[in-house]
């Protein structure tokens, strides 16, 4: 699915990722945990091609294609989806219009016909229901005046509509109460599929009670310093990150 090798990346000339390696197979859910400032959000931004994140070394291959040379929209059309930690508002642009433009662009890339407006509206309403958002949200501006939980559910709805192959969830749990967290987790679980992979970036173990990962990795100082099964998350919950960071410092 995706193969990340020796990835080095800078933000404003400061090195944040320092040789990250990660292999994710189809259908797998990988959790990335780690202390603040470890480079967790940087990983999602680098993979999705955000401006200002400069890759200095290494490779990222998605389904056999080198994506580092692609524009962000091309990566998205290749099936890479980033659920934002803080989704931005776009006043005046209706959610429906935005979603239609997005789905049209991805479908066109896949050589599929565009859905007509009626078909699309029906589909969008279904997805709203699935994430427990009222259909009236389709008419509102993209994230405009949405609460934190509504924004996250809106992200989830976009993910469901686009049916990406690789979903990166960037601290999706931040700012969510327990009910909203459950709705989001259920949505993600419903999308788990033998052909779809997930990178779940989180600071807390809590989210992983609901989205149970196949693998857990600890990111510290720009590298994966420890990998394990889901039980690693519990161990981190108990011990914190300090012991791993120290070991990494020793190694470096």
């Amino acid at each position: 699915m995706i193969s990340i090798k020796n990835l080095h990346a800078n933000v404003e000339d400061k090195q944040i990722l320092k040789g990250l390696n990660l292999e994710i197979g189809p259908g797998e859910v990988h959790a990335i945990m780690g202390p603040n400032g470890a480079g967790k959000s940087t990983l999602g931004n680098v993979l999705s091609g955000r401006d200002g994140y400069e890759v200095t070394e290494g490779s990222v291959v998605l389904n056999g294609k080198d994506i580092l040379e692609m524009e962000p929209e091309e990566r998205a059309r290749e099936g890479l989806f980033l659920a934002f930690q803080y989704p931005v508002e776009i006043p005046g642009v209706s959610n429906l219009e935005f979603l239609k433009a997005s789905v049209d662009a991805v479908r066109a890339h896949q050589g599929k016909d565009a859905l007509d407006s009626v078909q699309f509206l029906k589909l969008a309403r279904e997805k709203c229901k699935a994430v427990n958002l009222d259909a009236s949200f389709l008419k509102r501006g993209v994230n405009e005046g949405f609460s934190g939980g509504e924004k996250k559910r809106n992200e989830l709805m976009q993910m469901m509509l686009l049916e990406p192959e690789l979903c990166i969830l960037d601290e999706t749990d931040s700012g969510l109460d327990i009910d909203a967290l459950q709705v989001v987790a259920e949505g993600v679980n419903a999308m788990r599929d033998p052909k779809r992979s997930f990178i779940v970036v989180t600071h807390y173990q809590r989210l992983l009670d609901y989205i149970v990962p196949d693998y857990v990795h600890v990111l510290a100082n720009g590298r994966i310093v420890k990998s394990g099964g889901k039980e690693l998350a519990l161990e981190l919950e108990e011990k914190g990150y300090g012991w791993l960071e120290n070991s990494d410092n020793g190694a470096a």
Binding site: S48, R50, E73, A76, L82, I90, P91, F98
Partner: peptide
């Protein structure tokens, strides 16, 4: 950030700008 949200959803820059301006 607005442009990146659009592009991350597969929408190219020209289309994104025109959508944002029309919304405005």
């Amino acid at each position: 950030d607005q442009l990146f949200l659009c592009r991350q959803r597969g929408i190219d820059t020209e289309k994104a700008v025109s959508m944002i301006v029309n919304g405005f």
